[in-house]
Design a protein around this nucleic acid. Structure first.
Lengths: 223, 223
DNA sequence: GTTTGATTCAAACGTTCGTTTTATCCTCCT
DNA sequence: AGGAGGATAAAACGAACGTTTGAATCAAAC
C-alpha cells in the first residue's frame, strides 16, 4: 500500500486510540490492525510501545512550542517597548492548542489535545519526557508574564499559571463532560468560544491582587 | 490478623497504589500483598477489580459531598437573606477537598485527591459512576453561584465552574509538577495555601464581565 | 461439642499482552 | 540482471493479568 508511510499511519492510529482508550487500554494489536500494519511494525519503527507513545507526543509538541513562541514574540514586538497586554500573552499560550492545525496532518490533532490533558495526571514515565519538552516554553512565558504583572510575587504567578494549565487541560480532556452537564449549551469543540471564555476567566484571575500572606481568621483548614 | 477489616485494608492499599501507579498499572496481586490479604479477597469482597475501584471512590465521595453541602448551607444561612459572598461559596466547594480528614480514616485521604484529579480524564467506565455521584452537589453549587452572580449567562457560569474544577484537579493530580517547577517555592501539600491562592484566582475569574458574544476582529482561530 | 456459615487460602485456568525471531517481499543501485 | 538492505509478514515466546475453584480455617450458635 505504501512505503515508509507506515510510521505515519501508526502514529495517527495510536494518537486516536490512545486518546479514546488510554495507553494501557490500547494494545499494539489494536493499533497495528487499525493502521493496516503488521504487529511487529511498532517494535521495528519505535523499538517499543513506550517509544511509540513518546513519538506520538514529540510529533505534536515541537510545532506547538514553535507556534506559542512565535505568537508570543509577535505580541512582544507589537507592544514594545511596553510589556504586551496580559490577554495577548494568554492568547499566545492558549490559541495554538485550540487550533493545532497547520501541521502536516491537521485533522486528527484534536485527539492529541485529549492526550495532553491526560498526561499531567498519568503515572508513567511518559510524563517526564513530555514535561521536559514543555519546560523551556513555559519558562519563557513565565518571564513575560512576570514583566506584565510586576507586582505579583513569583510563587503566586506560578500557582496561577498552573491553574491556567489545569483549566486548559480539563477543557480538553473532559470536554464531553461540560457538553453533558450543560445539556449542549456549551460546546467544547468550538475552539474560538473556549479560547474567549478561558482568556476572560484567566486574565481576571491573573490580575487579582496577590493573596494575603496570612489567613484572615485562624486556620480555615483545621478549625 | 483481623476479621472483616480485610475490606478496609484492601481499600486503603488500593487507594494508595491506584494513585501512585494508575488503575491498569496496579495489579490485584500488588494490592492484596500490600494489604496482607489473599489474591482472591478482592473478588470475594468486591466481585471484580472494577468493583474495587468503584468502592474506593464511593467511600470518599459521600462524605465529601456532605461536607460541601454543609458548608454551603452554613454560608447561605450566615448571609441570608442576601446571597453569600462568592469567596464563601468557592471555599465551601474547595475546602473539603483540601482537608479530607474527618472521615473515619483521615490519614491516607490525600491519595484520593490524586485519583479524583485523574478520573476526569480517564477513559474507563469508572468516570460515569463517579460523575453521577458528583452531579447533585455540582447542580446545587451552580444554583447558588447563579444567585451570587445574577448577571452571568448560564453557559458562561458553567464554563467557569469547569475551569475551577480543572484548576483544582490539576493542583491535586500534578502537585509534584509545580513543586518541581518552582524549585520548592510552591508547596502543593500546604492545603491552606493552595486554598487561598485558588480562591483568589477563581473568585476574580468568576467576577470578570461576561465574554463578549462576538470576537472583536474576524476569527482568531482560523486567520 | 458439633454444626453452620462466613472468610481465607493455595493453586490453577484461560486470556491477553509486548516482544522476538525467522523468513519473505519490495525497491533501489551498479 | 542481480545482489544488498530496508521494510513487512507470520508465528511463536514467556510473562503477567483477572478470575475461578475447592479445600482449609475460623467464630459464633445451638
Amino acid at each position: 500500500m505504501s512505503k515508509e508511510q507506515t510510521r505515519a499511519r501508526l502514529l495517527d492510529a495510536a494518537e486516536r486510540l490512545f486518546a479514546e482508550n488510554g495507553f494501557d487500554g490500547t494494545s499494539l494489536r489494536t493499533i497495528t490492525s487499525a493502521a493496516d500494519a503488521n504487529l511487529a511494525a511498532v517494535n521495528y519503527h519505535f523499538q517499543s510501545k513506550e517509544g511509540l507513545i513518546a513519538a506520538v507526543f514529540s510529533r505534536r509538541i515541537e510545532p506547538l512550542n514553535q507556534e506559542r513562541i512565535t505568537r508570543l514574540d509577535q505580541a512582544i514586538r507589537a507592544a514594545a517597548p511596553a510589556p504586551p497586554d496580559l490577554e495577548d500573552i494568554l492568547r499566545a499560550f492558549l490559541l495554538p492548542t485550540l487550533r493545532l492545525r497547520g501541521t502536516a496532518d491537521g485533522l486528527e490533532a484534536g485527539h492529541f489535545l485529549q492526550l495532553l490533558g491526560r498526561v499531567f495526571s498519568d503515572p508513567g514515565s511518559i510524563k517526564a519526557v513530555v514535561l521536559s519538552q514543555f519546560r523551556p516554553t513555559a519558562q519563557r512565558f513565565l518571564e513575560v508574564l512576570s514583566q506584565a504583572l510586576p507586582q505579583l510575587p513569583r510563587p503566586e504567578l506560578l500557582w496561577r499559571l498552573h491553574f491556567l494549565i489545569g483549566s486548559l487541560a480539563h477543557a480538553h480532556a473532559a470536554g464531553e463532560l461540560i457538553r453533558l452537564m450543560s445539556a449542549g449549551a456549551c460546546d467544547p469543540d468550538d475552539g474560538e468560544g473556549v479560547l474567549q471564555h478561558l482568556t476572560t476567566f484567566a486574565a481576571a484571575g491573573f490580575r487579582a491582587p496577590h493573596t494575603r500572606p496570612a489567613p484572615q481568621k485562624a486556620s480555615m483548614v483545621n478549625p
